[in-house]
């Protein structure tokens, strides 16, 4: 998938530094020191009519970093990651992904969409296509791969997410967890450098959440850069390098999982965590 040399040399979970906290937006987890920024967001605003969904958001994400975004509902966290592959257009500020700025330029947009994979809360699989065709569609129509190559890759990905035997079925014949794993495989098929997860387990029955989180954890260990909007605190604590807390459209606090779960600084963060934990 991505350049695995750097990831395999440092596969260990993040080492927690207990040094003095740097200012928001500048903190770097130890295992990623020296990695280039792959996403840079500066002073981004987003309005829906009169409602401000994002308020002066600035942050950067390192290559291979696992970022979990937390926040109450309506806090703008989904809007934020949807801005990153331009499913929403931001109204002010800059978003640069892998050196390409997101703007009206359609060529930039296509370049970015091939770098960024997205997994949705509602899976959004194509119900009229088989699982295999769901995965091969982008490969064949966007990447123009021959059918057999695309299918071989798709089967590989289905093996990776643990359901190769479901290839010929249609999405409606699968359980929610299986569907979400197919959706992950579909996003991975385009060989993105960054994966965005918009509440990937929120629509799942409790017993299916783990199978999806396992796939995501495996993906994280392989060195993928991931931004995950989720309410799964266990995942945030174990897998994330950094947590971002959004409230009312603003980035309120960021830090390592340990910082968040032991000594959050902001009152709003404390309140949110006390409600959710």
């Amino acid at each position: 998938m991505t350049s695995e040399d750097t990831a395999s040399s440092e596969p260990a979970p993040p080492k927690i530094s207990t040094e003095a906290r740097p200012e928001p937006g500048t903190m770097v987890p130890e295992r990623l020191i020296g990695q280039p920024d792959i996403i840079t967001v500066s002073h981004v605003d987003k309005w829906f009519g009169d409602f401000q969904a994002l308020d002066d958001v600035s942050l950067s994400v390192k290559e291979h970093e696992i970022v979990v975004i937390l926040g109450p509902s309506g806090s703008g966290k989904s809007t934020f990651i949807r801005c990153l592959n331009r499913l929403e257009e931001h109204d002010a500020g800059r978003i640069v992904i892998n050196g390409i700025e997101l703007n009206e330029d359609v060529r930039n947009l296509n370049a970015i969409r091939s770098e960024v994979g997205m997994v949705f809360q509602q899976f959004n699989l194509f119900p009229h296509l088989s699982v295999l065709s769901n995965i091969t569609l982008g490969l064949r129509k966007v990447r123009h791969l021959p059918r057999l190559d695309a299918e071989a890759l798709a089967i590989q990905l289905l093996e990776r997410v643990g359901i190769p035997e479901q290839a010929e079925k249609h999405p409606a014949q699968l359980s929610g967890g299986q569907q979400q794993r197919v959706a992950i495989a579909r996003a991975l098929a385009m060989q993105p450098k960054i994966m965005l997860f918009d509440e990937p387990t929120s629509a799942l029955d409790p017993e299916m959440i783990k199978e999806v989180l396992d796939v995501m954890q495996e993906l994280a260990e392989s060195g993928m850069t991931m931004l995950v909007v989720t309410h799964e605190m266990g995942f945030a604590r174990e897998v994330a390098d950094r947590l971002f807390f959004f409230d009312e459209g603003a980035l309120v606090e960021e830090g390592t999982p340990e910082h968040f779960f032991t000594s959050p600084r902001e009152e709003r963060t404390k309140l949110f965590l006390s409600q959710i934990l």
Binding site: L87, F120, N124
Partner: peptide, 18 residues
């Protein structure tokens, strides 16, 4: 049709016509 279908198609990289 749910709006997610359009978004998923976009996210996969399909053009509007496709």
């Amino acid at each position: 049709l749910p709006h997610g279908q359009y978004e998923a198609a976009q996210a996969v990289g399909l053009s509007r016509g496709q």
